[in-house]
Lab assay of single mutants.
Amino acid sequence: ELKPWIEKTVKRVLGFSEPTVVTAALNCVGKGMDKKKAADHLKPFLDDSTLRFVDKLFEAVEEGRSSR
């Protein structure tokens, strides 16, 4: 259920769609990584945008959990 949101956010942050980043982000969430681990995992794909993306990712995960 997070996938469409992650795809949109990747496109907004990077300026283009990147399926590799979407898959990696879903893996981070699925494995229950904390922000630091997720950022380390995604840094090779996102460079300077990593922290901004990870912040948005974790906000969305929290919103998703609290709306259930």
Results as ranks from 00 to 15, higher is better:
Glu1Asp: 13
Glu1Ile: 03
Glu1Ala: 00
Leu2Ala: 00
Leu2Phe: 10
Leu2Ser: 01
Leu2Cys: 02
Lys3Pro: 01
Lys3Cys: 02
Lys3Glu: 07
Lys3Asn: 02
Pro4Lys: 15
Pro4Leu: 15
Pro4Trp: 04
Pro4Asp: 15
Pro4Tyr: 15
Pro4Ser: 15
Trp5Glu: 14
Trp5Ile: 15
Trp5Gln: 13
Trp5Thr: 14
Trp5Asn: 09
Trp5Ser: 11
Trp5Pro: 05
Trp5Tyr: 14
Trp5Cys: 11
Ile6Cys: 04
Ile6Glu: 01
Ile6Pro: 00
Ile6Thr: 01
Glu7Cys: 06
Glu7Ser: 05
Glu7Asp: 03
Glu7Met: 07
Glu7Lys: 09
Lys8Phe: 00
Lys8Ala: 08
Lys8Arg: 09
Lys8Val: 00
Lys8Trp: 04
Lys8Glu: 10
Lys8Met: 10
Lys8Leu: 04
Lys8Gln: 05
Thr9Val: 10
Thr9Leu: 15
Thr9Ile: 08
Val10Pro: 00
Val10Cys: 12
Val10Asp: 02
Val10Thr: 03
Val10Phe: 04
Lys11Ser: 08
Lys11Val: 08
Lys11Phe: 09
Arg12Leu: 11
Arg12Lys: 14
Arg12Asp: 12
Arg12Gly: 10
Arg12Glu: 15
Arg12Asn: 12
Arg12Ile: 03
Val13Pro: 02
Val13Asp: 00
Val13Lys: 04
Leu14His: 01
Leu14Gly: 02
Leu14Val: 00
Gly15Val: 04
Gly15Gln: 02
Gly15Arg: 06
Gly15Ile: 00
Phe16Ser: 12
Phe16Pro: 00
Phe16Gly: 06
Phe16Ile: 11
Phe16Lys: 12
Phe16Asp: 07
Ser17Ile: 15
Ser17Gln: 09
Ser17Arg: 06
Ser17Asp: 09
Glu18Lys: 09
Glu18Arg: 11
Glu18Gly: 06
Glu18Tyr: 13
Glu18Trp: 08
Glu18Ala: 11
Pro19Tyr: 01
Pro19Val: 02
Pro19Thr: 07
Pro19Ala: 07
Pro19Met: 02
Thr20Asp: 11
Thr20Gln: 12
Thr20Asn: 13
Thr20Pro: 05
Val21Cys: 05
Val21His: 03
Val21Arg: 02
Val21Thr: 08
Val21Tyr: 00
Val21Glu: 05
Val22Cys: 05
Val22Met: 05
Val22His: 00
Val22Asp: 00
Val22Leu: 08
Thr23Tyr: 08
Thr23Phe: 01
Thr23Gln: 15
Ala24Lys: 07
Ala24Gln: 11
Ala24Ile: 10
Ala25Val: 12
Leu26Arg: 03
Leu26Met: 11
Leu26Cys: 04
Leu26Gly: 03
Leu26Ile: 10
Asn27Trp: 03
Asn27Lys: 07
Asn27Cys: 09
Asn27Gln: 12
Cys28Phe: 01
Cys28Gly: 02
Cys28Thr: 04
Cys28Asn: 02
Val29Lys: 06
Val29Ala: 06
Gly30Glu: 15
Gly30Arg: 15
Gly30His: 14
Gly30Tyr: 15
Gly30Trp: 13
Gly30Cys: 14
Gly30Val: 15
Gly30Leu: 15
Gly32Gln: 08
Gly32Asp: 08
Gly32Glu: 07
Met33Val: 04
Met33Trp: 14
Met33Phe: 11
Met33Gly: 02
Met33Leu: 10
Asp34Ile: 02
Asp34Trp: 01
Lys35Phe: 09
Lys35Asp: 05
Lys35Ile: 00
Lys35Gln: 02
Lys35Ser: 05
Lys35Leu: 00
Lys36Trp: 04
Lys36His: 07
Lys36Phe: 07
Lys36Arg: 11
Lys36Val: 10
Lys36Pro: 08
Lys37Ala: 14
Lys37Asp: 13
Lys37Val: 04
Lys37Phe: 08
Ala38Phe: 08
Ala38Lys: 02
Ala38His: 02
Ala38Val: 08
Ala38Ile: 09
Ala38Trp: 11
Ala38Met: 13
Ala39Thr: 09
Ala39Trp: 04
Ala39Pro: 00
Ala39Gly: 06
Ala39Tyr: 13
Asp40Met: 13
His41Glu: 11
His41Leu: 11
His41Val: 14
His41Phe: 12
Leu42Glu: 02
Leu42Trp: 00
Leu42Val: 01
Leu42Gly: 01
Lys43Gly: 04
Lys43Phe: 08
Lys43Pro: 03
Lys43Met: 08
Lys43Ile: 03
Lys43Val: 02
Lys43Asp: 00
Pro44Ala: 09
Phe45Trp: 05
Phe45Cys: 07
Phe45Asn: 05
Phe45Ile: 12
Leu46Val: 06
Leu46Asp: 05
Leu46Trp: 04
Leu46Ser: 04
Leu46Pro: 02
Leu46His: 05
Asp47Leu: 14
Asp47Pro: 09
Asp47Met: 13
Asp47Gly: 15
Asp47Phe: 13
Asp47Val: 10
Asp47Arg: 15
Asp47Lys: 15
Asp47Gln: 15
Asp48Glu: 14
Asp48Ile: 06
Asp48Ala: 11
Ser49Arg: 13
Ser49Ile: 12
Ser49Met: 12
Ser49Ala: 13
Ser49Trp: 10
Thr50Ile: 03
Thr50Ser: 05
Leu51Met: 12
Leu51Gln: 15
Leu51Ile: 11
Arg52Lys: 14
Arg52Ala: 14
Arg52Val: 14
Arg52Cys: 12
Arg52Gln: 13
Phe53Gly: 05
Phe53Thr: 06
Phe53Glu: 04
Phe53His: 04
Phe53Pro: 05
Phe53Leu: 04
Phe53Met: 04
Val54Asn: 07
Val54Phe: 00
Val54Gly: 04
Val54Pro: 06
Asp55Gly: 02
Asp55Thr: 04
Asp55Arg: 05
Lys56Trp: 08
Leu57Trp: 02
Leu57His: 12
Leu57Gln: 07
Leu57Ser: 07
Leu57Val: 06
Leu57Phe: 09
Phe58Lys: 02
Phe58Val: 09
Phe58Tyr: 14
Phe58Gln: 04
Phe58Pro: 10
Phe58Gly: 07
Phe58Thr: 04
Glu59Gly: 06
Glu59Leu: 07
Glu59Val: 06
Glu59Asn: 06
Glu59Asp: 08
Glu59Ala: 11
Glu59Ile: 06
Glu59Cys: 05
Ala60Gln: 13
Ala60Pro: 06
Ala60Glu: 12
Val61Asp: 08
Val61Pro: 07
Val61Gln: 05
Val61Ala: 07
Val61Met: 08
Glu62Asp: 09
Glu62Phe: 08
Glu63Ile: 09
Glu63Met: 10
Glu63Val: 09
Glu63Gln: 10
Glu63Leu: 11
Glu63Lys: 10
Gly64His: 14
Gly64Val: 13
Gly64Phe: 15
Gly64Asp: 13
Arg65Gln: 10
Arg65Ser: 11
Arg65Phe: 10
Arg65Met: 11
Arg65Asn: 11
Ser66Ile: 10
Ser66Cys: 12
Ser66Ala: 13
Ser67Val: 14
Ser67Gly: 14
Ser67Tyr: 14
Ser67Leu: 10
Ser67Thr: 13
Ser67Ile: 09
Ser67Asn: 11
Arg68Gln: 10
Arg68Lys: 10
